[in-house]
Design a protein around this nucleic acid. Structure first.
Lengths: 163, 163
DNA sequence: GGCTTAGTTCATTTTGAATTGAACCTTGTT
DNA sequence: AACAAGGTTCAATTCAAAATGAACTAAGCC
């Protein structure tokens, strides 16, 4: 009988479930939702061991998930260290969460997309200038407009979420 | 030697690749990126068989992918039917694409999230009214604010993308 | 120094989503 | 009606992403 959310009340496990859905929508691993969820609904910061015990996940998973959440800025070390053990608490500001996600997940994709697009445009320049290459050029320039729009919208979005 | 993008020029397969990255970011299956990509860069509409031949994917995959893209409003049947075979072309308006994605993928998630949240709030109402339940109520009401913001932002986003 | 506890890393395993392919409809053609 | 071509469905398979867990490093403590 492998442990699965043994340490969670019905209420808590439903909260965790809520966040699991949320991270799935964002394309992030389930464990991030579990970890953030349990931190979100805890009155006190939790240590890595607590996550392992209460969620029934492996130490490796907890460590990696916690790291990812810190990178995203969704979780931070809490207060003064009591001994050498670290305790973690969630950042509950939507603005920060969205900002971290955009910075870590969205922008890198956008950047590599731009790179590829630049490449494609160069390939078209090398082609003989006929109807076909004109068509290609048109489609690529439309793609460029898309990514440009994304660039403009993201800061606006962040600003809006901060209100 | 199983066929893989046999029918694609270097240029075309890089375009397809671009869209594969794109759909990955949105958490959609790779095949959608392949299919949309090849349609996007084709001067003429393509039939299901063309997708199978050029992308080297199975008929089943092509059929399912095409269906999903139609549901998303990213692809439509082109012109008058020549015989009984259908040909498909991409919708290239960012506004439409984003709208379809939001309607089909985002809103359902939001709706089920609201359902769950309502449930959780009821659970808290049943609890004895102490400091703990107050804490829970606070956290849940913050979640409510998040989803409300999402609700407000999505239409704004669509409007912006349509400009 | 030797011991213990906290945390990380990474090769292997698991699991869940995507793809396949064969059977099955449907519609048109002779 | 028999056949063919286009398309769909779904059980079985494949594959990539995530979780595991054992080995490892780092940091106190005696």
């Amino acid at each position: 009988m492998a442990g699965e959310k043994q340490g969670l009340s019905d209420f808590e496990s439903q909260v965790v479930d809520f966040f699991c859905d949320g991270v799935k929508l964002l394309g992030l691993p389930r464990s991030l939702g579990e970890i953030y969820g349990i931190l979100y609904i805890s009155q006190e910061p939790l240590a890595l061991d607590d996550l392992v015990d209460r969620l029934g996940i492996s130490k490796g998973s907890a460590s990696q998930g916690l790291r990812m959440l810190r990178d995203l800025g969704a979780v931070r070390e809490a207060g003064a260290a009591t001994g050498r053990k670290s305790y973690y608490e969630p950042d509950v500001e939507l603005k920060q969460l969205a900002g971290g996600f955009i910075k870590e997940q969205v922008r890198p994709h956008l950047a590599s997309g731009d790179e590829k697009l630049k490449n494609l445009k160069n390939m078209v320049k090398e082609m003989p200038g006929d109807a076909r290459s004109d068509f290609y050029a048109g489609r690529l320039s439309r793609l460029g407009a898309w990514t440009k729009k994304a660039r403009v919208v993201l800061p606006l979005l962040q600003k809006f979420l901060g209100r």
